Amino acid sequence: MSVVQTENLNIAAFDHMPSPEEIKARVPMTVPANAAVVAGRKAVMDILDRRDPRVFVVVGPCSIHDAEAGLDYARRLKKLADEVSQTMVLVMRVYFEKPRTSTGWKGFINDPFMNDSFRIDVGMERARKFLLDVSEIGLPTGTEALDPIAPQYYGDLISWTAIGARTSESQTHREMSSGLSTPVGFKNATDGDLEVAINAIISAAHPHSFLGINSHGVSAITRTRGNRYGHVVLRGGGGRPNYDTVSISLAEQALTKAKLPRNVVVDCSHANSWKKPEYQPLVMKDVAHQIREGNDSVVGMMIESNLVAGNQPIPADLSQLKYGCSVTDACVSWETTEEMIRNTDAMLRDVIGKRERRA
């Protein structure tokens, strides 16, 4: 009797994927980019440790699909970052991977040509090049870690990492976060549950051992030291926002009960704005007002922003894409972004230095 095949029954092909080492050789780190990454990480860590009274703001497109428009955005953001540096550290939101409830475009790495060719090898190299270019402009970058292998390819160019609402409960992502070299923000679950994020912070702070790959692309037992820079990101959920003073107070109490630092980041988008980008300025204004009134737990905010307001479907003819407009969630325009950031800077300028600092 012959042996019946029992594996790879639903696998169509295994295509070659360059190793992290190969991709990094093609797109090597530079001194200016490295300086921006190191400075960005230090700034965010100092804010989380309360050595820096400012807040960090992760701001940028819902997803990157056009490198040219993305770099246009980055250059504008760098000028704005320099302008408001007394009160805020601006981190460019650079999201390459998009989680999907069912189907849809999965992002720049998975399908860089936006035509279902799924050239992940090309997407990974282009993603690294984009991060390098943004870093050389002098901006720190933040991204969502979705694929547990991807950080090996470009993690050296990231200053802040988010774990999304759909993956904060995932053991794989908690283990991965324990080994990341950046601070990690864990979002509350889509139903609004905060305990998921708090448990994730606790888990990621401890050492873990798990199956991964090394820089040569070879399977390896990955052993981590633990990441003490986990923190909560409030993004709303369960049919209501959670950026109000009561919700933030409850988050503070939950963190204290868990013996964790009272570090809270507020996502001005998603359920906190009912997925209506025009509400994001109202959320940011409310949070800035809480800081002005003495709140010392809010250490950061997130904004979904692009050159052009709104979003657009991906057309069959990609030449018809509107420049600088999101192909995923709707964003606020660049002009609105400038107004939001400048208004927040004005609200915080005379109070930011009074926030609690630690030696």
Rank of each mutant, 00 (worst) to 15 (best):
D46V: 07
S135L: 01
G226P: 14
V196E: 08
V57E: 10
L348A: 08
L139T: 01
P18K: 04
T182R: 01
I201N: 09
A162K: 05
I137T: 00
K285V: 08
G185Y: 03
V94Y: 05
N311P: 07
V218M: 15
V327C: 07
D345V: 08
A69S: 14
M176F: 04
W334P: 12
K276Y: 01
R262A: 11
A346Y: 05
A309C: 00
E278Y: 07
A35G: 04
D52R: 10
D66A: 04
L131Q: 10
G310W: 00
G236H: 01
R292F: 08
L71V: 04
G230W: 11
T256Q: 11
Q152S: 00
T167M: 15
K98D: 04
D15T: 09
W105V: 02
I11R: 12
H65S: 09
N8H: 02
T141L: 02
A39D: 00
M1Y: 12
R262T: 02
S215F: 15
I163A: 05
M29Y: 09
C268W: 14
G324V: 09
T245P: 00
A127R: 06
E125G: 14
A359D: 01
K354A: 10
Q152C: 02
F118Y: 13
V299M: 10
G294D: 03
R51L: 15
I120T: 07
E195D: 08
D116W: 01
V37L: 04
R240H: 12
D133I: 00
P151C: 01
S219P: 14
I314D: 06
D49T: 12
G138A: 11
T141P: 11
E195Y: 09
M88I: 01
G230N: 01
G104K: 05
N306K: 03
T143A: 04
G212D: 13
A189F: 15
T143K: 06
Y95G: 00
V308P: 14
A254K: 13
A13D: 08
G236I: 02
T256I: 10
G138T: 10
S297Y: 13
L180I: 13
S159C: 01
L77G: 01
N10H: 12
N311V: 00
A258L: 05
D267F: 09
L48Q: 09
L282P: 00
V233C: 07
E339N: 09
V233A: 03
W334H: 11
K187H: 13
G192Q: 11
Y95Q: 10
R75D: 06
Q280N: 12
N115A: 02
T172N: 02
A39S: 11
N227V: 13
R126Q: 15
R228I: 02
G217T: 07
A359Y: 05
N199Y: 05
P53C: 07
R357P: 04
P20N: 03
T344V: 14
Y95S: 02
L132R: 09
E293P: 14
T103S: 08
S177G: 06
L157W: 03
L9T: 04
A205Q: 15
T182W: 04
M302A: 08
V4C: 06
V246K: 10
R76D: 00
L321Q: 03
A204G: 12
T167N: 15
L146N: 09
E339W: 06
T167R: 15
W105C: 06
V31H: 06
E83T: 04
A36T: 02
S19H: 11
V287E: 07
